[in-house]
């Protein structure tokens, strides 16, 4: 069925109706989350009690808005801290990996490439528990041997960062490699002919070419880190990132302040995603 081949009208319209219905299905949960952020009631459910901005700016119980709810503000800070570290590490290692796999041919390259893809097919919960078990074993061994404390290896932000980094790096590598493959090597050779050093040529010619992919990979890493739940759940200590805090509140039933946070999250992540897409499209 393609537009150039005539089809019966019934078929055409029922197909269109299905597609429309599908997009309603896609939009429905997100729209209700957003709508109930403005409901003047302490439960995120019907009946509709009128419009309010209290779930954003309110500071009187029970109407405590996002901007006055300490636990949520703190966890947003924690999430941002984790996301920046994860994105920085993932982009750095991803860029190194891209150069390694695109520019070098060595024994075991295919094997290492498959290993590099593995984090994609390991469930996040398993990644979390394996890192938890391993770091605790190392911490126990070190503490027995030295008598010192190794808190960094116990559940906490360092482990959360390492856990998220362990699979987000694969995405960063794939995004950056895809762009590096399109690079014309003769540009770098020209720079070398004009007297640039190897590193100078990479820095002044290749890296600027890679910049859209590097920024794109960074944005994707930040988004993935912010919304990661499975791996984080297993590694989290006393400082919980936003998704964990929201999950705890959601399990115990909460006020529409969660809708307000969600609305802000939807706006930020959709905006960031669109920007990274436009940025990549504009440059390529």
């Amino acid at each position: 069925m393609i537009p150039t081949v005539p089809q019966s009208n019934v078929l055409k319209w029922s197909y269109r109706a299905y597609v429309t219905l599908f997009f309603v299905y896609l939009a429905l949960p997100l729209s209700v989350v957003c709508a109930f952020a403005f409901n003047d009631s302490v439960f995120p459910s019907l009946p509709w009690e009128g419009f309010t901005m209290a779930w954003f700016f309110g500071d009187e119980a029970p109407f405590i808005g996002v901007f006055h709810e300490r636990s949520i503000l703190r966890s947003i800070g924690t999430s941002a801290f984790v996301a920046i570290w994860v994105a920085g590490l993932a982009v750095f290692v991803g860029t190194c990996n891209a150069f390694l796999f695109v520019r070098h041919n060595f024994r075991g390259r295919g094997f290492l490439y498959i290993l590099m893809l593995l984090p994609l097919i390991i469930p996040g919960v398993i990644l979390g528990i394996s890192i938890l078990v391993f770091s605790s074993t190392v911490a126990n061994t070190l503490e027995d041997a030295t008598g010192l404390w190794f808190d960094g290896l116990r559940p906490g932000l360092i482990l959360v960062i390492l856990g998220q980094f362990s699979f987000i790096t694969t995405f960063a590598t794939l995004v950056i490699s895809a762009r590096l493959q399109k690079f014309d090597l003769s540009l770098e050779e020209a720079a070398l002919n004009l007297g640039a050093t190897k590193w100078g040529a990479v820095r002044q010619v290749t890296l600027p070419f890679l910049l859209p992919a590097i920024v794109g990979a960074g944005v994707v890493s930040i988004l993935m880190s912010f919304e990661n739940f499975n791996t984080t759940l297993m590694l989290v200590g006393s400082d919980s990132p936003l998704t964990i805090t929201m999950f705890d509140k959601l399990k115990h039933g909460s006020t529409p302040v969660l809708n307000a946070v969600s609305l802000l999250l939807i706006i930020c992540s959709a905006g960031l995603g669109l920007i990274s897409l436009l940025f990549q499209r504009g440059k390529s």
């Binding site: 949960p29 997100l30 109930f36 912010f226 809708n259 969600s262 999250l265 959709a270 995603g273």
Partner: peptide
């Protein structure tokens, strides 16, 4: 767009 939004938010929507 829904894929960029946290899974938690999507699930919350279904709960509502």
């Amino acid at each position: 767009i829904p894929f960029w939004v946290s899974e938690l938010v999507r699930t919350f929507g279904w709960m509502i």
